Amino acid sequence: MTAGEYQKSSFCNGASSCVEVCHLPNGNVALRDGKEQDGPVLVFTPREWAAFVAGVCDGEFDLASLASGTHGSDGEAPGRPPAKPLAGFGADSAPV
């Protein structure tokens, strides 16, 4: 895998306990643990990454929703407004 420039979310505020994302030259997306930068790396195809980001935006992975199994039938978490894309992490994001 070609090393690229990994990014952390601005919500991390410099913390090392965040995951890091890297857009690879071949279009895939790499994900690693910020605390273990030499550790394992997960690599996703653009389609897999887009599905993951859509799930995050839809609240699919919210702990309360997962624990209760109350995910809405329309794919939205109950009581949530429609999902908005995460800037810089969607399927149509330009490589870093």
Rank of each mutant, 00 (worst) to 15 (best):
F89C: 14
P82V: 07
D58P: 00
T2F: 02
E20G: 08
L63Y: 11
S73V: 13
C12E: 02
P78C: 10
A64L: 11
N13W: 11
A67E: 14
A77R: 15
A15N: 12
L24A: 09
L86Y: 08
A77E: 12
N26C: 06
P40D: 12
P95M: 12
K84L: 15
T45L: 03
P46G: 05
K35D: 09
Y6P: 01
A51R: 02
P40A: 13
D62S: 05
K8H: 07
P46R: 09
S9Q: 00
G75P: 06
N26G: 05
P40I: 05
A77D: 10
G14E: 13
V21E: 00
L66N: 06
A54N: 10
E5W: 10
S9P: 06
P81M: 11
D62Y: 04
G27N: 06
K35L: 13
T2M: 05
S10M: 04
D38K: 13
P40Y: 09
A15P: 08
V41Y: 04
W49S: 01
H71M: 14
G59D: 00
T2C: 01
D33Y: 06
R32T: 04
N28L: 02
A30R: 03
V56M: 02
N26D: 15
G59Y: 01
P46W: 04
V56H: 00
A15Q: 12
P85T: 06
C12K: 01
D92T: 15
S17M: 04
A91G: 15
G72V: 06
A50M: 00
C57N: 02
V56I: 11
G55Q: 01
A51Y: 02
G14R: 07
G72S: 05
L42G: 01
R80Y: 14
K35N: 10
A94R: 15
G34P: 07
A91Q: 14
L31Y: 07
A15E: 08
L86S: 09
A3M: 09
G4M: 04
K35E: 14
K8I: 08
A3W: 08
M1P: 11
D33F: 07
K84V: 15
F52Q: 01
S17H: 11
P78D: 08
